[in-house]
Design a protein around this nucleic acid. Structure first.
Lengths: 238, 238
DNA sequence: CGATTAATTGATACTTCTCAAATCCTGTGG
DNA sequence: CCACAGGATTTGAGAAGTATCAATTAATCG
């Protein structure tokens, strides 16, 4: 909470704190100007939907500050959380590039500020900066690796193992606050929807992990007490 | 079987039947020459490993003719089949691009012929043809969508549903032979390793589907008798 | 400070896994 | 081409692991 906090994105991408870690990291000044001029600001309140599964997005969001979940609806209407996005992440480009309807809905987990870049400008950037599409390609390839891990985990591990694993993943992705709690609040249902289990099962197993001292919980706030126990439980391979 | 069958790849990529459907589809003649000159032929017998999980590939394979499985080893040493590759597919580029060790082993499901393109030439192509990396990007984005479907399926569907689904996927991917059997032979264990279940469970459920008339089996050959029943069973959403 | 929504706990039913044992089949060498 | 060895498939029985339904209690949001 100080003047260093950029709650809303700056007018020019050149000044954006997230740029070094975003897909825009290697854009030349000229292209950055183009993007800056054509981008729009967008704010999403907690719980608000940014993109709907099955839709055809007309542009791309660059997350300035916030956290979002990507999820698909299964046949029973149950959410399956597939991944997350946070500061610096580009959202919606896959659908545009593969020319397919969006594969997952995106909803804000907390109040989120983003820049909206229309499809046409996005393609302009691609044409002007080959390095940009290469960066996107790199990111996608990395994501594909992560997806492979998730697939193996879902297919082979027990719910208990996956739960232990997810806490480690969440910590690696979102970090902890000053008290050591995960810097992300999720409902038990959302946790269940990541791990692929019933809410009640997730709750029971979270209680187990708590009583075993691996984690500590305070409502929706979760602290990892014993990472190595979690690692053992999760049978983390890599 | 005739002289139209290109068992081994031609010397020049320009002449390759697979090019229109491969990531090389939009290469200009000049770059194609470069690739042709630098590529090598490689043959893999059924069961032979093309790439090992965790390794650092020094080049990329373009599959000329054959079928391969990608799989990760879970903590119990169990294979999880993540996807397949066949004619025209590029194998190994993800690891090279994301600069990570290979995420999945790749093994030939039948005798396979491929072209090997060294890393350096691969990057040369990327530099010379922006359209190429864009094509790769498109392919990756599509794959990411598929991975998302697989994740949701594993997380939310029963083994029975996933099994029904996988037969439909296999037919869509590999097609059928003249007798209507899937043009791909897998062991029951491999089927189990796709669906994420124990071999015995897969066997039992395959028997069920057979006795319900949805499929027909003859050893490892599988024919889909009633796709719509399978679709119903699988609760296919999209 | 209600009114909902979320979290928890219990009881029970199902699904799936594991271990074991008995064929069956496939690929190979003669 | 045939016989054989060894892996693959099949079936059974029992044990775990999870899901489901129902009923409370707790937490959260206007």
């Amino acid at each position: 909470m100080g003047k260093t906090d950029q709650l809303e994105p700056p007018h020019h991408c050149q000044l954006c704190n997230n740029r070094p870690s975003s897909a825009f990291r290697d854009l030349n000044a000229e292209t950055l100007d183009t993007v800056s001029q054509l981008k729009t600001c967008a704010a999403f309140k907690k719980g608000q939907v940014m993109l709907h599964e099955g839709a055809r997005p007309q542009g791309v969001y660059c997350i300035h500050k916030g956290k979002l979940k990507f999820y698909r609806l299964g046949s029973e209407g149950k959410e399956q959380i597939v991944r997350f996005a946070t500061n610096g992440d580009l959202v919606g480009y896959r659908s545009i590039l593969s020319d397919e309807p969006i594969g997952a809905s995106v909803t804000a987990l907390e109040d989120t500020f983003a820049c909206y870049i229309p499809k046409s400008s996005f393609f302009e950037v691609i044409d002007q900066n080959p390095k940009f599409s290469l960066n996107l390609l790199q990111d996608s390839c990395h994501e594909l690796g992560e997806a492979g891990k998730m697939i193996t985990s879902l297919a082979q591990k027990t719910v208990r193992q996956r739960l232990a694993e997810i806490f480690l993943v969440l910590r690696a992705t979102f970090g902890e606050d000053h008290e050591g709690y995960l810097d992300l609040k999720l409902t038990r249902e959302e946790i269940a929807n990541m791990v692929g289990t019933a809410t009640e099962s997730a709750i029971r197993l979270i209680s187990e992990l708590r009583s075993e001292g691996a984690i500590h919980t305070a409502g929706r706030r979760i602290k990892i007490e014993d990472p190595s126990t979690l690692r053992d439980l999760a049978a983390v391979v890599d």
